[in-house]
Design a protein around this nucleic acid. Structure first.
Length: 416
RNA sequence: GUGGACGUAGUUCAAUGGUAGAGCCCCGGCUUGUGGUGCCGGUUGUUGUGGGUUCGAAUCCCAUCGUCCACCCCA
């Protein structure tokens, strides 16, 4: 008869202050850098019609077929928690009537939901920082989006990240390549692992980045998309690389990069680290020129990427929690009201202040100590009579009596 | 979804079938207008949960929940 322990759902974690401090650092870097590239923040719903993802991501993908939190609501509508951001962004862009508003540059930060088996760096509710650029066709835009991603991660100062790019071709050249690859794979099917044999049918390009060594040995001379691009895609891919070279952005062409979601074409990229085990992809994206039309809009080229906020946060050094500027200690009950008033004056002047709550001086100074404040303002009956406060600097124990207005000046000066 | 490791105090970890412990943290005192270092004292657990084996289970067995790791997939 013991009650079930009340706890969060599996794979869905809390963001406590120490964790949120790390998230905020990542978010601040994103906002600053994306702002420099003239991207605007958008906020989209977490709930969307299930149909949206079935049509955009592809019914056969794992995300849609088994990882969505989908349900029927009380009105009988098919609803789901969004598993990714791009489809909703396209929906919002269409619904907002922005198809003729020129290039739209968007970014968003928010939770996504996938019912996977949790692991480090893989949660059922996780946050993505996403970027979408609509009505942008050229390789220049691709290079700039890549440059923006690079600038964002550089701002965070995470070492050991590598940019890998590839071209996935388009409707004109991919089918032919796919056929060639499939027949190549079928000839070797006997020597490939079991999962690869399933992939040959479901998603042959996935075979190329199989982690099994014996598979990789078998695939050394496998045909690659980059060698089978049509002229248009080839020019585009060359253009992207020229742009990156001009910006001196380090990258590596990895012909084996594949996209999980159906809607990608041409440029695909990933930024990876080796410090997160098998969840090493920290940012990924690419071009999706066909998606808007797929969802009922006018043919519109677009490109975007998404970064995993928790994964990036894990790569950060410890982020110190903000500490208050001052702690207020009150000595004797008579001065309680006076102490509250002094705290109020300092807060209105912009300082961060904690009141130690009265009681014994010893207890209050311990409280102040634990708050890691640099200064304590102590007030008792003496100070109240004189209309001053005692300012103590905790590091060296020095203290002096001053009017509270001067305390503000001193602290603000020292905090600079 | 598949395979594996793990789960003991707020926390980090001991206790290999025989009375559940230690460090840190926390609270109080030495010191009722002064913190950190010191000394003294104190609180803390249905050993994740539920069953089973046993005279006796943190320890062995089963189930379940959760974390972690790999696969799958992906940010």
């Amino acid at each position: 008869m013991s009650e079930k322990k009340l706890q969060s759902i599996r794979g869905i974690h809390d963001g406590l202050p120490a964790e949120v401090a790390r998230w905020q650092r990542v978010e601040q870097a994103a906002r600053r850098v994306f702002g420099c590239y003239a991207f605007s923040e958008v906020r989209m719903p977490v709930l969307e019609p299930t149909e949206l993802f079935v049509r955009s991501i592809g019914e056969a993908t794992d995300i849609v077929s088994k990882e969505m939190y989908a349900f029927t609501d009380q009105g009988g509508d098919q609803i789901c928690l969004r598993p990714e951001g791009t489809a909703g962004a396209v929906r919002a862009w269409l619904q907002g009537g922005l198809t003729r508003s020129g290039t739209q540059r968007w970014y968003y930060i928010g939770p996504m939901f996938r019912r996977e088996r949790p692991q480090k760096g893989r949660l059922r509710q996780f946050q993505q920082i996403g970027v979408e650029m609509f009505s942008a066709a050229g390789p220049i835009e691709d290079a700039e989006v890549l440059a923006m991603a690079h600038a964002f991660l550089s701002e965070l100062g995470i070492p050991g990240l590598n940019i890998e790019i590839n071209s996935l071709g388009c409707g004109a050249c991919r089918p032919g390549y796919r056929e060639k690859l499939t027949s190549y794979l079928q000839q070797r099917a006997g020597k490939l692992c079991e999962t690869c044999n399933e992939r040959i049918v479901r998603n042959p390009m996935r075979v190329l980045d199989c982690k099994v060594q014996s598979c990789q040995q078998e695939l050394t001379d496998a045909p690659e998309m980059v060698a089978h691009l049509c002229d248009g895609c080839d020019d585009h891919f060359t253009g992207v690389q020229k742009g990156l070279d001009a910006l001196a952005i380090p990258y590596r062409v990895n012909p084996r990069i594949v996209r999980g979601l159906d809607y990608y074409n041409r440029t695909a990229f990933e930024i990876v680290t080796d410090k997160l085990g098998s969840q090493g992809t920290v940012l990924a994206g690419g071009r999706y020129d066909g998606l808007v039309q797929e969802l009922g809009g006018p043919a519109t080229p677009a490109i975007g990427f998404a970064a995993g906020l928790e994964r990036l946060a894990m790569l950060l050094d410890d982020v110190p929690l903000a500490t208050p500027d001052v702690a207020v200690v009150v000595l004797g009950e008579e001065a309680l009201g006076y102490s509250l008033a002094q705290a109020d004056v300092m807060r209105k002047a912009g300082l961060s202040v904690v009141h130690c709550g009265g009681g014994s001086a010893k207890r209050q100074f311990k409280v102040a100590d634990r708050e890691l404040v640099r200064f304590v303002v102590a007030v008792g009956e003496d100070e109240m009579q004189a209309g001053v406060v005692t300012l103590k600097e905790m590091q060296n124990g020095q203290q002096q009596r001053l009017p509270v207005s001067e305390v503000v000046t001193v602290i603000k000066g020292q905090l600079l």
